Simulated assay, not measured.
Amino acid sequence: MLGLLLLLQVLASCLWLGHSEVVPFFADCRQFFYARILPSDALHPENPAWICQWYRNSYHYATLYDRDRRIPVYSAYIYQPGSGQRHHTWSFVEPQVNESYPKEMEREWVLRHQYKFPIDKIKQSQAVLEDYKKMTGLDRGQLIPSGHQDSTDSKTATFTLTNTVPQNSDLYTGRWNTYESQIMPTYTMNCTTTYVITGAVPGKIYVADGRVNKPSHIWSAACCLVGTQPKKAWGLIAENDKNQVENLSLGELEATLTEFYGGKTVTLFSKACPRQ
């Protein structure tokens, strides 16, 4: 009888641990990467969280998160703009970044008051709303914009602080917004499926009382498939202190990121995606 109880305890522990969605190398959400191939290890931070972003019983995208700098390294998704309406204006935090908490993104207020999660524990490994309220000249820049998602739930899921970086306000509302809302639709016009990875290069400046890193650059890359074959790809990058965007080939963007990451080779997509 004692042996059976011990066995049940072990099984229960395994089930609880399996509930967390911080799984190395995105084991449960590789569908957001073309050919299920991940970017190279050169982008990995020292204290990573591989988040399969979960909301309303579905995965919506994948994020590699830097727990120490409290910003995402990149978010990967499939470009699917649609007419779904976002139904609120709040931003979520991610209980799962702390690994022992449930996987679904949730409002900070709900975690603190309904589930009794201590705010200090939440703040330990991620940014919180208080951090962004302390920033000046910076906006909550989403790596995946809600406009690139189709349903109400998928749009809502982009409003989590693990998909957010401190972004220069002029850039956020200016050239970067122009790319997301006007240029991206023209680039993808004849694509059957477009895989996108958008990221941030860590900078030397920390904001919000030194808690959150301000990226030096914001970048994005896309691989366009016609049918099942990749036919074109592109990239762009912007310094995070001015309203300018540089358009690049995928190969040029990877070469630029390789320089930023100390010469460690950066690849973002499968070799099948055109580099020129």
Rank of each mutant, 00 (worst) to 15 (best):
residue 34 Y to N: 01
residue 105 M to F: 06
residue 265 T to V: 14
residue 259 E to Q: 15
residue 149 Q to K: 12
residue 220 S to N: 05
residue 161 L to F: 03
residue 17 L to E: 09
residue 22 V to L: 07
residue 46 E to F: 08
residue 221 A to I: 00
residue 18 G to N: 15
residue 18 G to H: 12
residue 44 H to G: 05
residue 32 F to C: 11
residue 41 D to G: 04
residue 25 F to A: 14
residue 207 V to W: 00
residue 72 P to L: 04
residue 241 D to W: 10
residue 252 E to W: 02
residue 130 E to V: 10
residue 150 D to C: 12
residue 5 L to V: 07
residue 57 N to Y: 11
residue 257 L to R: 00
residue 185 P to W: 09
residue 220 S to H: 04
residue 14 C to A: 13
residue 126 Q to D: 06
residue 181 S to V: 08
residue 180 E to H: 13
residue 272 A to N: 09
residue 31 Q to R: 15
residue 228 T to L: 11
residue 200 A to T: 10
residue 42 A to E: 12
residue 135 M to A: 11
residue 176 W to I: 05
residue 49 A to V: 11
residue 54 W to H: 15
residue 174 G to M: 05
residue 132 Y to L: 08
residue 14 C to G: 10
residue 78 I to W: 04
residue 16 W to L: 13
residue 44 H to P: 00
residue 66 D to L: 14
residue 154 S to L: 03
residue 187 Y to H: 05
residue 234 W to I: 01
residue 84 G to W: 02
residue 146 S to F: 13
residue 139 D to H: 09
residue 235 G to T: 02
residue 272 A to R: 09
residue 106 E to Q: 15
residue 157 A to R: 01
residue 115 Y to L: 13
residue 56 R to D: 15
residue 7 L to E: 13
residue 224 C to I: 03
residue 87 H to T: 13
residue 74 Y to L: 05
residue 18 G to D: 12
residue 190 N to Q: 08
residue 50 W to N: 07
residue 126 Q to R: 04
residue 258 T to R: 08
residue 47 N to Q: 10
residue 215 P to K: 03
residue 125 S to A: 07
residue 266 V to R: 02
residue 197 I to C: 07
residue 113 H to A: 05
residue 269 F to L: 07
residue 89 T to W: 10
residue 226 V to H: 08
residue 18 G to Q: 14
residue 10 V to G: 02
residue 204 K to S: 13
residue 86 R to T: 12
residue 220 S to L: 02
residue 16 W to Q: 12
residue 113 H to S: 09
residue 28 D to Y: 12
residue 24 P to V: 03
residue 76 A to S: 15
residue 167 Q to T: 08
residue 112 R to M: 06
residue 276 Q to P: 13
residue 262 G to D: 10
residue 185 P to E: 09
residue 261 Y to V: 11
residue 175 R to V: 12
residue 41 D to Y: 04
residue 209 D to I: 10
residue 61 Y to V: 07
residue 14 C to I: 12
residue 189 M to L: 13
residue 42 A to R: 04
residue 147 G to M: 02
residue 145 P to I: 05
residue 245 V to Y: 01
residue 20 S to A: 12
residue 48 P to Y: 01
residue 158 T to S: 11
residue 79 Y to V: 06
residue 252 E to Q: 15
residue 150 D to P: 02
residue 264 K to W: 02
residue 12 A to T: 06
residue 161 L to H: 00
residue 124 Q to D: 08
residue 40 S to I: 11
residue 15 L to F: 01
residue 134 K to H: 01
residue 78 I to L: 14
residue 153 D to Y: 07
residue 103 K to R: 13
residue 244 Q to M: 06
residue 191 C to Q: 09
residue 70 R to V: 00
residue 77 Y to G: 09
residue 175 R to H: 11
residue 52 C to R: 09
residue 149 Q to Y: 03
residue 118 P to E: 03
residue 37 I to M: 08
residue 76 A to V: 08
residue 122 I to H: 01
residue 228 T to C: 07
residue 214 K to C: 03
residue 178 T to I: 09
